[in-house]
Simulated scan of single mutants.
Amino acid sequence: MPIDAAKALAAEPRTGEISWNSKDVQLYHLGIGAGARPDTPDPVTDPDELRYLLESRLQVLPSFATVAGAGSPGVISSLSMPGIEVDLARVLHGGQSLVIHRPIPARGTATATNRIAGVYDKGKAAVLVLRTEVADTEGPLWTNDSQIFIRGEGGWGGDRGPSARLDPPVGDPDRTVERPVRADQALLYRLSGDWNPLHADPEFAKVAGFERPILHGLCTYGITLKAVVDALLGGDVTRVRSYATRFAGVVYPGETLRIRMWRTPRSTRVAVSAVERDDTPVLADTVVEHT
Rank of each mutant, 00 (worst) to 15 (best):
G235M: 11
Y221E: 10
V240D: 04
T220R: 14
I223P: 08
V251F: 04
G235D: 10
G235K: 09
T238V: 13
A248P: 04
I223C: 09
Y243K: 00
D230E: 13
K226H: 12
C219R: 03
V250D: 09
Y243H: 05
G222Q: 07
G234E: 05
G249H: 08
V228I: 10
L232F: 12
I223Y: 11
T220S: 15
T238L: 06
R239F: 04
V237N: 00
V237G: 02
T245Y: 01
V229E: 01
Y252R: 05
L233M: 15
G222D: 14
V228A: 04
V240S: 02
F247G: 04
V228E: 00
L232A: 12
D236C: 06
V250P: 13
L225K: 02
V251Q: 00
Y221N: 09
R246N: 07
Y243M: 02
V250Q: 15
T220F: 02
G249V: 15
K226C: 10
Y221Q: 06
A248F: 14
R246C: 07
D230P: 11
G234H: 10
T238K: 11
L225Y: 07
Y243P: 02
R241Y: 09
K226I: 09
V237H: 07
T245W: 01
D236F: 03
A248N: 10
L233I: 13
R241W: 13
K226M: 15
G235F: 08
L233Y: 12
T220N: 12
D230A: 06
T220Y: 03
L218W: 05
Y221H: 14
A244Q: 11
D230C: 11
Y252L: 14
R241D: 12
I223S: 04
T224I: 04
L225A: 11
T238S: 12
T220E: 01
A231Y: 05
V240M: 05
G234V: 09
T245A: 14
V240H: 02
Y243R: 01
T238Y: 02
